[in-house]
């Protein structure tokens, strides 16, 4: 360690502090302006921290599993009865679905409908959560090496969670649909009323740009409309929980704070999202990666 005289040390400290404050302020402004410099820096830091985050996130996952197991053990009989009843009901639905699927296939054949692009997905574990009050995102332990592409939809079995906003080589950030910056074109299933699901950092995002006198009701299912081309149509999002004539809020199907594993689905639509880089090569690489993968990649 270099020994400095107290006077010199004090002088260095006097200079360092305002310099660092200035640098922080510059970063805030740069970040706000969405600069490319910070994007790549973010990805590198995310990649570097991924192993540590992965390791640290395991114990909390284990505790959660243990608590879940204990709870399951206590309610096993009621749960069994409920599942038996649900199974009976679902078998009926299965028959209906099979019938509709074959009918659908026949009709598509008759009408010569262009086939939907094949989807592929990567399953990834959530390793970090944005600890801020002012942003909603998570980091998952899969990145470019695993075939994750920016713009992919992040879903669970229940519904839409968000989209891939940044991709490092072995980790990716998912911007949740509750984030202040998230905007998803949606449609109410019953009334076919279109709107934009706008996050505001609260648990219940709002529906914006509803028509005046919109005919939506509490309990209406909200799904993606597919407009804008980032998400495919029909991904379940939530149900209308509050509607007072002007403001509508949506109760999401997915409980975002409890998500452990996410499926990052490539619907072949990732190109719809404007790239943060004004350079072409990135887009070219992406096509190369997603082409040819039509089934489960991991």
């Amino acid at each position: 360690m270099i020994r400095l005289s107290p006077a010199r040390r004090a002088m260095i400290q006097r200079i360092t502090f305002p310099l660092l404050v200035l640098l922080s302020a510059v970063m805030i402004v740069l970040g706000k302006a969405d600069q490319v410099v910070l994007e790549s820096l973010k990805n590198s830091v995310m990649d570097a921290a991924a192993p540590a985050l992965d390791m640290l996130s395991r114990p909390s996952g284990l505790v959660d599993t243990a608590v879940g197991r204990a709870r399951d053990f206590l309610t096993v009989y009621q749960e069994n009865a409920r599942l038996a009843e649900e199974n009976e009901r679902l078998l009926g639905w299965q028959q209906a679905a099979l019938k509709l699927a074959s009918e659908n296939a026949q009709l598509r054949d008759l009408l010569r409908v262009a086939p939907e692009p094949a989807t592929s997905y990567v399953t990834a574990r959530v390793i970090a959560n944005s600890g801020g009050t002012y942003a909603r995102s998570v980091i998952v332990n899969a990145g470019r090496e695993n075939g994750v592409v920016r713009g992919e939809a992040a879903v669970t079995g229940e519904g839409l969670v968000g989209r891939v906003s940044e991709v490092g080589s072995r980790a990716a950030r998912i911007l949740l649909i509750t984030d202040l910056n998230s905007r998803v074109p949606v449609i109410a299933e019953g009334s076919r009323q279109r709107a934009v699901l706008a996050g505001d950092n609260s648990e219940h995002p709002s529906l914006r740009y509803l028509e005046v006198g919109a005919a939506i009701r509490i309990g209406d299912r909200i799904v993606t409309s597919g407009q804008g081309g980032v998400f495919p149509p029909g991904l379940p999002v939530g149900v209308v929980a509050v509607f007072n004539g002007e403001l509508a809020r949506v109760e999401l199907f997915v409980e975002l704070s409890r998500v452990d594993y996410l499926r990052l689905v490539d619907y072949g639509l990732a190109d719809a999202l404007p790239s943060p880089l004004p350079l072409a090569p990135r887009g070219g690489k992406r096509v190369e990666q997603s082409a040819g993968s039509s089934s489960v990649r991991r």
Binding site: L23, M27, I28, G31, K42, S130, G132, Y134, I139
Partner: peptide, 14 residues
């Protein structure tokens, strides 16, 4: 921390 949390970079540092 800012880079990892996805918030505005520089805020926590400041």
């Amino acid at each position: 921390q800012d880079l990892l949390s996805g918030g505005l970079t520089g805020v926590t540092a400041l």
